[in-house]
């Protein structure tokens, strides 16, 4: 199975994850500062800044797109509860 690297720059932790892993599945386990509300792509609480490797994250779904717009998110922002690591590269994220 393809693997990717997911780095949480606020705590200097990098996790090797299987492709398809959502950021939320990892960030809570390592204690990163990304925070969560509804956990289902509705509230936008888990907005995070993608500092690198945006191309190694899944494209936003229509649901996530709606939340990003509602929250006036910048182009480097994603919802941690929705974004999945695709593999073959490193994604760097930080709490928004």
């Amino acid at each position: 199975m393809a693997k990717g690297k997911l780095s949480f720059t606020d705590i200097d932790v990098t996790v090797t994850v299987p492709a398809g892993t959502r950021v939320i599945e990892v960030s809570e386990k390592v204690g990163a500062g990304i925070i969560y509300g509804c956990r289902e792509g509705d509230c936008g609480t888990c907005l995070m800044k993608v500092e690198g490797g945006m191309e190694y994250l899944s494209e936003p779904t229509a649901l996530e797109d709606k939340v990003l717009k509602e929250n006036m998110a910048g182009k480097d922002m994603r919802c941690a509860c929705q974004a999945q690591v695709l593999g073959d590269g490193e994604v760097k994220v930080h709490p928004a």
């Binding site: 996790v15 090797t16 990892v26 386990k29 390592v30």
Partner: peptide, 9 residues
């Protein structure tokens, strides 16, 4: 800096 595998979390 720490590098860990998801399976070890």
């Amino acid at each position: 800096p720490k590098v860990v595998d998801f399976a070890d979390l």
